[in-house]
Structure formats: C-alpha cells, structure tokens
Design a protein around this nucleic acid. Structure first.
Lengths: 338, 338
DNA sequence: TTGTATGCGTTATCAC
DNA sequence: GTGATAACGCATACAA
C-alpha cells in the first residue's frame, strides 16, 4: 500500500503538497496538481482516512445505537441517520443493544474508543449513568425516541403519553369499555411506560375503572403479542379492545385472537403504535399511532452535526404523532360481550 | 483527553508498560499493573482504538454493504454479521446502496479508506468491476445472497433457481395453469433473475406454455407488489396464481388483489420468497420460500474472519432454502376461471 | 519484568 | 505555491 510519501517522491514534490491536492486542490498550481494526481494513479494510491482522523481528531464516523435492527421502526430511524450522514460524508457504526443496558454501555465505550465524532442513541434508560457520563465528558450525542424533557441532553421524540391517550380515546369513543393494554416491558424502555400512562389517564377521564388484569407487559415481538392476546382473551370477562404499544405486538395479537376463534374486527378492536410500513397491509388494516421514524433519524443526525460543529445548546424536540384510523377498530355493538 | 503517556508518568513507568497492561496484562508484575490501572482511573484514561489501528494495521472494523436496511431480510443478515462480529470484538460500519451500483462503489471506497479489515457485501452486480478490483487488490470480502459459483470470491447464498423452481412447482401441483411472476427488477439484482429462470424451467417441464404477459418486473416494495397484482389481474385472462420474488411483493400483491375484489386464497394463490418474520402473521398466512438470512450473515462473517486471519481459499457455500406451505396457496378448482 | 527508541500516514505550522 | 518537519497515540523490537 503506497502512501503520500511514495506519491510525493514519484511526483517530485513534498508530502505537504500531496496532502494539499487531496484536501484543497485549488491552492496548488495546476501543473503540479496534475503531476501529483498522475503519480497517485501510478502508485494506485489509496487514501488512509484513519491516519487523517488520527491527526485531525475527527474520525468522520458516528455511532448509532439501537435496541435492534430487527424492529422496522429502528431500522427506519437508522436509515434516516445514515442518509443524512451520507450527505455529509460521515460513516455510521451500528450496534444493537437488544434492550440490554449492559450492552448499551459496552457499545458506547467501544464507539468512543473508536473516536466517533458523536453518538445517536435510542436508549433503554434515559436516567442511567451512561448518558450522564456522556454529558459530563462533553461527548456530543442525541437521543432518539426520547422521553426526556428539558435538561442537558439533545433529544428528539414524540409525546408517548399523548400517543397512548389518543389510542385509548379512539377506542373509548368507539364505546369500548373493557380495553386492555399489551405493553412492551416497562423495564425495556420507558416509552411503553409513558404510553401506559396515557392509556390509564384516558380511562380515568372517561370514568372507566382501571383493571390491572387488563395490562400485560411482554417482550416486544410478534410472539409476545400473540401470547398476550391469548391470555387476555381467556379472561373471565375478556376485553373487547386492545391497545398494543407497538405494531408487532398488535399484529401478533391479531393472530392470537384469530387462533382463539375471534373475528376481527367484529369481536375485537386493536390499535397499534408506530405505523410500520406493513400496518396498512394487514387484514384488517391496522389502526395505529403513526410516528415519523425516518424523519426522527434524519433530524437527530442534523442536531448531532450541529452539536459537533458548533457548540449549540441542548434542545428537546417533539415530533407530531397521529392516530391513523384504519379497519382494525370498530364500534363496540351495544349489548356486546362485555 | 489523557494518553498512555500521562498514565505512564503518573504511575512512574514507561509507556511500553502501560501498553502492556492494556494488551497483555499477564506479562506485567501485579504490583506495577495495579499502579498503572490506578493511574488510568485517576487520569480518566480512554483508550484510543484509532491510534492502535493506525499502528497495527488492523482497525477491528468491517464494512457491511446492503441494498437497504429497510428490507427485513437484509436487516436479518446484517444482524447475523453484527452478532458474530460482536463476539469477536469487531465493529460494523453499515451502508445502504439502495440498489444503486454507483452507491455500492462509493461505499466500498469509503470503507476501504476507513481501513476496514474486510467487507460483507450484498451486491447488486456480482460481475461488476468493484468486486474484481477487490479480488485483485487482495481485500478480504464475502458476498451474501450470492449467486456466484466457483471463482475467486468467497460467497454464501442459496440456490435461487431452485427456489423459483420449487415455488412454481408447488403452484403447478395445485393445478394452477396460469401462473404469473411478480419479480424484482432484474437490473436490481440477479437473484430475481435466477428465480425467474427456475420459474420458467418449471413451467416448461410441466408443459405449461410460457406467457411473457405474466411476468412483471417491479421495484422491490409493497407498493410494487400491489400495483403489479392489479395489472396482472386486469388482464383478459388473469392468472390464478402468483409467484412473487420476495415477501413484500407478495404482501403487496395480496392487498392489490383484495382491492380488486379477489378473495384470498380462493380466487388467487400467492407464494412469496424469503419468509420474513411477518409472513406467517398475514391472513391468509403466506406460503413462501424460506431462506436463512440470519444464519447467512453469521456464516458470512465467520468466513470473512477466517479469510482475514489465515489466507484460506475462496469457497462458495449454498445454504438450504425450503418451501413453507401455509394458507395463501390452494388447489385451483377444476373448471375455475382459467 | 521493564524501559528506550522508532515508526505508522497524515496534517499543520512555519519557513522560504 | 511549495517544502521541511513536528506531532498525533500507540505498539513493538530490542536492550537492559
């Protein structure tokens, strides 16, 4: 592998000049520039970005940490980050935490050792020590799908409480009285917890008694949704509606319900969360709370880059989420099962 | 940011010793080791992996190039690579080509400049100049979802021809005569092309005349599937079955068919390709060709690491794919529409 | 077991 | 416009 030194010798110039034709070609005379580029071709010279980063203290790399690439939602936000990064000639190091805090910590450490210029994190615990350390040590980072308001961290998210509230309200307006919630484990992320708060408050505001039997916490997966649905529907007084804290749970619940002989949406209304692309391709098409994942990633990257370039102060941005009414929710017939 | 020099001074040892406690602690006396680790804490020393990579010529980073993270299949194989890499303390740089060859080239260049130890590529064109250059210049890489047999590249894939054949054969056995294929654009990747070959050969072997009207090439997306289905079903003599070259296309096609008033699976049988997780959660559950994406990624990473460590010779591995019969395909009633 | 010295490929600072 | 050279943080060959 040849270096700028080889090129310099061949072109009969100094390494400084070679470096210049790479980084600011305008400042070098056309004649020399051509000699240098010619020499680069002859040497089959390959630029070493690592060496550059080493001296400039800029790796032009950012780290992206998500629970799992396996969830379309995180794939989308990651794509948003990637696209924005690509535009700015920045590369992305990606890691999955699988909702394990220890793994999150490990990734942060490794990425920092790799001298990333910044981090985009979808955290499992916004109040943990990891982020605090990052703040203290001045490492640029932004949170995605964040629940934090105020404070020293830059973050973008949606109002999960509101999302949960709206989902539930939709069901209430449809005359459902027994509304269950299939939630991702509160310990996995507090997004689920906030959605549950919205759910609960909505019930309260509508004078529907809260029944703790109707809350299930489960792993965020299709299977989790399916199994939870079966449990819920096997209750003495089964619910007539589900609010699932993500679409996978909802889609799993659909299957679970069907396996128990429930007709959808006649016997059970379901609302999901996220509006993953496939939601509108289910039968019945899934009613859900849409959150703009791709945009969130893109915006997060933008905020991070601002934070890296200039020392802007932390902001917390709330993106709009919205209820998308489709076919999986219908009016509860008066005198129905419940 | 403190360096090993700071630590060395504080601990009253040389930088070499500090380096030793980091890389091979056993060789340094317990007493000194403790002094050093103590000093590291005091300094809040952070290891600089970039500097290390710079001298060892090993970045402990690999580049993964996929068409799009947005496709569950590529997300899965990427996850396989990541998991295996993580076990080996290697980080992953990820990039999307969006099926554009130019972007693939750009990513390869950038990743090489970043001094990746190797590349895992799901290519758009196995016969292009990019891979040839990589071979010529001795850059370790492995192909995923590969269609190449023999030659100088290490690759893992499935038999796409066989997959296409089996999918079609299943439909033929179900007495379908007019079988359409909804294919991803042949120009996007030759996987789709190979599947079409299987499809075509199967028709031939079963003495079903090939009708070019029944082939649609489209973008690999839900929308692409939906629109193609509508076109196909609006034909004078519409097909009674679809073979879709991936599951998104199949799921899209389901929706398209329904929008035209077709009942599934009674009026139309559909078989997909990939067996993405959600396939068995569709109604009707999707019959499809399963390919082991996660395993492919994991195996690919393993092969790559072997290639990096020892100079093993190139191999092309074929993983088993299989037909998963579910509900979306049924026997074509004798005297049906076609 | 520990220290000294050198080098990795590039950029940046000063000269010229 | 261009060149000489120090510096970046670490690993390693060699010496002690």
């Amino acid at each position: 592998m040849s270096t700028i030194l080889d090129v310099a010798k061949l072109a009969g110039v100094s390494t400084a000049t070679v470096s210049r034709v790479i980084n600011s070609p305008q400042v070098v005379r056309v004649k020399t520039r051509e000699r240098v580029t010619g020499a680069m071709k002859v040497c089959n010279y390959k630029y070493n970005a690592l060496a550059r980063g080493f001296v400039t203290k800029r790796s032009n790399t950012i780290g992206v940490i998500i629970p799992t690439i396996n969830n379309q939602v995180f794939a989308e936000s990651t794509r948003g980050v990637q696209d924005y990064a690509d535009l700015n000639k920045i590369q992305v190091l990606l890691g999955n935490t699988y909702y394990r805090y220890g793994q999150e910590e490990k990734l942060v450490t490794t990425f920092r050792e790799k001298q990333v210029d910044g981090l985009v994190i979808t955290t499992t615990n916004p109040r943990g020590a990891i982020l605090k350390t990052l703040v203290d040590e001045g490492v640029p980072f932004v949170l995605l799908y964040s629940t934090v308001k105020g404070g020293p961290m830059t973050a973008v998210g949606i109002d999960n409480y509101q999302g949960g509230y709206r989902a539930t309200e939709h069901l209430v307006k449809l005359c459902h009285k027994r509304i269950a919630m299939v939630a991702g484990n509160f310990s996995s992320s507090d997004r689920s917890f906030h959605r549950w708060h919205g759910y609960r408050q909505c019930l309260k505001n509508n004078k529907i008694p809260y029944d703790s039997e109707l809350l299930i916490q489960t792993e965020y997966s299709l299977i989790g949704g399916r199994d939870s649905a079966k449990k819920l529907l096997s209750l003495q007084k089964p619910p007539t509606a589900f609010f699932c804290s993500n679409d996978y749970l909802a889609i799993g619940a659909m299957k679970g319900a069907r396996e128990l002989g429930f007709k959808l949406p006649e016997d059970l209304s379901i609302v999901g969360f996220d509006d993953i692309r496939i939601a509108s391709y289910m039968t019945p098409e899934l009613t859900t709370i849409r959150q703009p994942s791709y945009e969130m990633g893109k915006l997060g990257a933008e905020l991070l880059f601002q934070r890296i370039e200039h020392q802007v102060k932390p902001v917390q941005l709330m993106l709009e989420s919205s209820l998308v009414v489709r076919e999986s929710t219908i009016r509860q017939p008066v005198g129905g099962i419940s």
